[in-house]
Amino acid sequence: MSTAGIVVGILSCFVGVGLFMCIAIALYLGYTQGEQMSKCFKNSASSITSATHRHSGPYGKIQLVGGISFVVTFPRFFLKHGILDAADAGNFPLHYKRKLIALQWSFIGVFISMALLACLGWSGILD
């Protein structure tokens, strides 16, 4: 195996650890603060904080936190389509908002990194 292949392998390990950390943080937020975050969307569409997400185990908690973080990170899209109420977006607690925006961009960065490393591996440049 070439040196470039080893470097890509090590970077892939870092991306895997990053993904694991993002999932662990989402689970932690879902189990400890999911109910409080769900209560902040009283006037918005129920698809953001569906009751099935809250009561369907770890996968549901990840879906709940992922949905809320997506809404908090990109509120214009949801306001434009009538899913999010402007009052709910403005009244969302700032400490939750910062955590969820950082988590959302971390997930996006991890998935982009994963895709780039996969394309680099499949391209044959490293052979």
Results as ranks from 00 to 15, higher is better:
2 S>T: 15
4 A>R: 15
5 G>L: 14
7 V>T: 13
8 V>S: 14
9 G>E: 11
11 L>H: 09
12 S>Q: 07
12 S>W: 08
12 S>P: 07
14 F>T: 04
14 F>R: 01
14 F>S: 01
14 F>D: 01
17 V>P: 07
20 F>Y: 04
22 C>Q: 08
23 I>M: 06
32 T>M: 07
33 Q>C: 05
35 E>M: 07
37 M>Q: 11
40 C>H: 13
42 K>Q: 02
42 K>H: 02
42 K>R: 06
42 K>G: 00
43 N>S: 12
46 S>Y: 07
48 I>Y: 01
50 S>L: 03
50 S>T: 04
50 S>W: 02
52 T>V: 05
54 R>W: 08
55 H>G: 03
57 G>S: 12
57 G>C: 11
58 P>R: 15
58 P>K: 15
58 P>F: 10
66 G>R: 09
66 G>Y: 09
69 S>L: 04
69 S>E: 04
69 S>W: 05
70 F>E: 08
74 F>A: 11
74 F>Y: 15
74 F>I: 14
75 P>V: 10
77 F>Y: 15
78 F>V: 08
78 F>H: 14
85 D>M: 08
86 A>S: 07
91 N>C: 02
91 N>D: 02
92 F>I: 00
93 P>K: 05
94 L>D: 01
94 L>F: 02
94 L>Q: 05
95 H>F: 02
97 K>L: 02
97 K>N: 03
101 I>Y: 01
102 A>M: 08
102 A>P: 08
104 Q>F: 13
104 Q>D: 06
104 Q>G: 09
107 F>T: 03
109 G>Q: 06
115 A>S: 09
120 L>E: 03
120 L>S: 10
122 W>V: 03
123 S>K: 10
124 G>T: 11
124 G>Q: 12
125 I>A: 15
125 I>N: 12
127 D>H: 15
